[in-house]
Design a protein around this nucleic acid. Structure first.
Lengths: 335, 335
DNA sequence: GTCCCCCGTCGAAGCGCTTCGACGTCACGC
DNA sequence: GCGTGACGTCGAAGCGCTTCGACGGGGGAC
């Protein structure tokens, strides 16, 4: 193995000079730097990661904790992970993969052994048992999602309120005046899952602002429940022409139900959704949707972490602007 | 930070004794071990990963290179990755995530800097540019998939020949006598992609062995092509009652085509496939299939790597036995 | 001309751990 | 009763890198 002393000898300088030439932490003359770089190239030198970590107390590795729960949309996770790795590499860092399964012990382990410099935790729950640990850890972390009590933590997520607004505004722009939100199962709202409620807030606010008539309908994640909601909507709001779905599982069943009830999508009814693109694209009538911007999320998470590692201050909350993708399920109102 | 000397002092022994108590590389009296363990617990000691890596030239980290190519089925990759992480943890190792994108430089980097002890490379191509590099690296590696020239490498994959056989045998057991294989696009066979050809071998061998009449039909990954193949099959082999599909993209279109041509699945025609479970389950008529056993693949890959790291000898090729899952698409022959 | 300071470089001291050789002790064999 | 291991422990020497303090030399300020 070729080490820094070899490079130093070959370049006719001291090891510390090689180190400084590499890190740029002290001024090195242009000429010396050249010689060092050439020596490095000729010898094929690669600094030993462990030695570096030991001496500098920086491993240049980030931990990424991915969820395993059922119901998590795998492509979204993967996209996020790839984005994290790619962005981390641009900042000269690597990524250690941890599973949710490892839990708090896993976080503590990689943090305390100095295996990683910082952590990214996906799929944060409202009352996540890991929150206290993350707060107490001496290493910076970024959470994807918002817990109930985010104080002292750095969180990143889609701006679900704006997402709700974006869907309504899209429908309003197409001339729709009566809209409904078909949401997540009731227990999700009862649990107080922040993001579901924020969609409702955005939906309602935008409808009010635009003078639309609106209503909100939680819905179980079953085709039967979707059918019931569809029937109820037609009965109670015959003038309904636009809906927002925030419940991936019933996207297709709900559309089917409406069509069976005689409404064509998008002829009679325009449908928008908040769901992963894969789902929006794979249903029978591809649906205009706001997706979780996983790639951007990953990038931002890493950027925030880098700033924290540099000792910089970062906002506690980062909300990403929704981006709506128009597909076949929305059309101007049929006048 | 609490270090090994703190533990040593607290336990009234020397640092080396603590180290040996931890690693078990030298005999330590039961009593001393107890004292050391207690000291560790009381002080909350965690060995510094970098220091350990430097002193022992073992980082206890594995690199996992995941593919990004389009056409790769994401859930399979994710399942594999999770399995690798889980298994690695059981062997006291962590996993560093690399993307295909990093290419050869990435492999060289993590290997040469001693960031990782060994590598797992997914989605190996027939003439993968990384092969020579992996062969020349001083660190062990395991490939998922088989390249054209696997000499000097350790490869793991599904036994595709046995998978082809399993499908035929399943159909034979149900009484089917005339079967067809609808395979991958022609260019896949021309390119000599080993696994596609091995499916054909297994399919043909099992059919011959069982006295079935059989035929093989490459097929483009488009609904139109599927339709053509279906028509051709019906025309040329009216007695056909069983098919094996090795082409994820046309699973649904092909079934649709047959039904439109008047054949019911599984009433008139039994369908088996070699494809990820997610796909087999998500088509209209869930299809009896052999899946890529990603979890098992990940586990085996790690086990092989561990053996190599211990200096053990491992087989060049490891083929995993196929497991067929019966679903709604197969039934006894309609006599 | 002198003083000061900055630039560029060096030497040495660790970073926290593993591992090698050494050493004392004890039990056993002959 | 003494040699011979095996056992259990210790001390010290690194592993390869970063970083701190120091130092010589040159340029600017006065």
């Amino acid at each position: 193995m070729v080490k820094i002393t070899d490079v130093a000898r070959h370049a006719g300088v001291s090891p510390s000079t090689v180190s400084y030439a590499l890190s740029g932490k002290r001024p090195i003359s242009e000429e010396t730097r050249q010689r060092v770089e050439e020596a490095i190239r000729e010898l094929g030198y690669r600094p030993h990661a462990g030695a570096r970590a030991l001496a500098s107390s920086r491993s240049n590795v980030l931990a990424l904790v991915v969820p395993l729960r059922a119901g998590i949309h795998v492509p979204v996770v993967m996209q996020f992970a790839v984005s994290v790795v790619t962005t981390a590499r641009r900042h000269d860092h690597d990524v250690l993969l941890l599973t949710q399964e490892e839990g708090e012990d896993g976080l503590r382990r990689v943090a305390d052994t100095a295996l990683v410099d910082a952590l990214i935790v996906m799929d944060v729950q409202l009352h996540d048992p890991r929150l206290d640990l993350l707060r107490s850890l001496e290493r910076p972390s970024v959470l994807i999602g918002f817990p109930a009590e985010p104080a002292g933590l750095t969180c990143v997520d889609l701006d679900f309120k704006a997402a709700g607004e974006a869907c309504v505004e899209h429908l309003a722009r197409l001339g729709h005046r009566v809209v409904a939100l078909v949401g997540s199962p009731p227990e999700v709202y009862v649990r107080g899952t922040a993001f579901a409620q924020r969609v409702v807030q955005g939906f309602t606010a935008a409808a009010d602002r635009g003078g639309l008539s609106s209503s909100v309908h939680p819905c179980e994640a079953t085709p039967a429940a979707a059918r019931l909601v569809a029937e109820q909507l037609l009965r109670e709001q015959p003038a309904l022409t636009g809906i927002v779905v925030h419940n991936e599982a019933i996207l297709e069943p709900l559309t089917d139900a409406f069509e069976q009830l005689g409404l064509r999508v998008p002829g009679d009814l325009s449908v928008t959704a908040i769901c992963p693109d894969e789902i929006a694209e794979s249903v029978r009538v591809p649906v205009t949707s706001v997706a979780l911007p996983s790639a951007e999320l990953g990038e931002r998470a890493v950027q925030l972490l880098m700033k924290k590692l540099d000792g910089g201050a970062v906002p506690d909350a980062t909300l990403l602007a929704p981006r709506i993708t128009e597909r076949a399920s929305t059309a101007p109102r049929n006048t």
